[in-house]
Amino acid sequence: MKLSDFVIREAVLPDLAASTKEEVIREMVASLRTDGHVKNGDEEGIVKAILKREEQGTTGIGRGVAVPHTKHASASRLIGTVALSRKGIDFQSLDGEPVHILFLLVSPSDRPGDHLRALETISRHLRTDVFIRFLRQATTREKVWEVLDDADMNQLFS
């Protein structure tokens, strides 16, 4: 699976305005409304579902990364977005550190495998310091796309 298989490029947010976990999740789900990937009527339900799951256990997996996600009936396929926070968000992460990189995933109700494969893809790339470093240095949407594309083509390893 490639990152480009599920990351909606127009929804990428290189500089999050929000500063709390809830606001960030709202901002990211709102960005998925571009091109109707998420419909207006579904937005609140998706945000609530993601927040509810965060209460059950944080997706702040450490190294400044979080992977908030939910299944939702409205999703016909797995979609996601990437967002960067300059200031850092408190996500109650496993390592206690603030989060600067977020991958948000919305997946169809009946295909948990897709979601797992996306997580596997994301975490495979996150294991390289270069991926994290280049993402954090990206200041524009286009620069974020470059990092994701390079990762997909395994061009990040030098």
């Binding site: 799951r53 059950q56 256990g57 944080t58 997706t59 996600h69 299944k71 797992l116």
Partner: peptide, 11 residues
Amino acid sequence: PEGLHARPAAK
């Protein structure tokens, strides 16, 4: 049902 995704992995 959802497999070993982020939350159970974190636990």
